[in-house]
């Protein structure tokens, strides 16, 4: 199975009727970094939040369509949403450290699931902080409040928090907006490592970041999928005029 996620003709509306996504169909490959890029309001974040059913919390109504993860439609009302969210983790644009220590942040998801064994929890803390390239910086202060860290460190802790649950898919919604270039570089490097084990979907905060990190890239414009293809070639040789215009900065 090369396609981890298959999206079939997904359409979505806001409660007031405005359309957010129109007939999106795409296949997302396993163990790769798929990038969703485009100007604001294009539907990228909305799509991301469909993948972990976070949209259930808002007044967005699914119009129609299916999202198959490992051949199961996650939009089905009978889906176990809790299990889904452990399988599909999300890192948000602003780092949101929970009001607890670094260690408690990381193990939060595991404790929710009922994991109590200290050995398992400690192991998860070390493993995920290493994967997020921040273990060396915080290993001596795991019991300090997470809010004491810098923005870039907080975001990597948030990534570790997600990885501690050993998800299969990792969603990142503009994770480096607001971070300094050094932290941004660390996060992007982490992505390259991550894709070996996980399926990574990234909404970048700039076209350049998209070009740096994408194995596959999808261009979204006002709720429609304009172009989707190989990351290497799409940025140098886009097929659609609108894609080219956006990449060249003719509109933003």
């Amino acid at each position: 199975m090369v396609d981890k996620i298959v999206i079939e003709n997904l359409s979505l509306q806001y409660a007031d009727g405005a359309e957010s996504l129109r007939g999106i169909s795409m296949e997302i490959r396993k163990n790769a970094v798929t990038v969703l890029f485009g100007p604001a309001g294009g539907g990228k974040s909305t799509l991301l939040r469909c993948l972990n059913r976070l949209n259930d919390l808002t007044d967005i109504k699914t119009g129609s369509g299916r999202i198959l993860i490992d051949d199961e439609n996650i939009l089905d009302p009978k889906t176990d949403v809790i299990a889904l969210r452990r399988k599909v983790g999300m890192v948000f644009a602003r780092p949101v450290p929970l009001p607890m220590s670094i260690r408690e942040n990381i193990i939060y998801g595991l404790e929710l699931a009922g994991e109590k064994r200290k050995s398992k929890l400690d192991e998860a803390v070390e493993r995920s902080l290493k994967l997020s390239a921040i273990w060396d910086e915080v290993k001596d202060r795991l019991d300090e409040p997470a809010i004491a860290l810098s923005g870039g460190q907080q975001q990597r802790v948030c990534l570790a928090r997600v990885l501690a649950l050993q998800p299969e898919i990792v969603l990142l919604d503009e994770p480096t907006s607001g971070l300094d270039p050094f932290s941004t570089g660390k996060v992007e490097a982490a992505l390259a490592e991550l894709k070996k084990e996980y399926t990574v979907i990234l909404v970048p905060h700039s076209v350049q970041q998209a070009a740096r990190t994408a194995d596959y890239a999808a261009f979204f414009l006002t709720g429609e999928l304009i172009e989707y293809g190989d990351g290497k070639t799409l940025f140098t040789n886009p097929k659609q005029k609108k894609t080219e215009d956006y990449i060249m900065g003719r509109f933003g």
Binding site: Y14, G41, K44, S45, L47, T58, D59, I60
Partner: peptide, 16 residues
Amino acid sequence: SSVVFRAKKRAERILS
């Protein structure tokens, strides 16, 4: 209380 001045918070819109 019907002259309430607190602006009602709209349901969070997800920007993309």
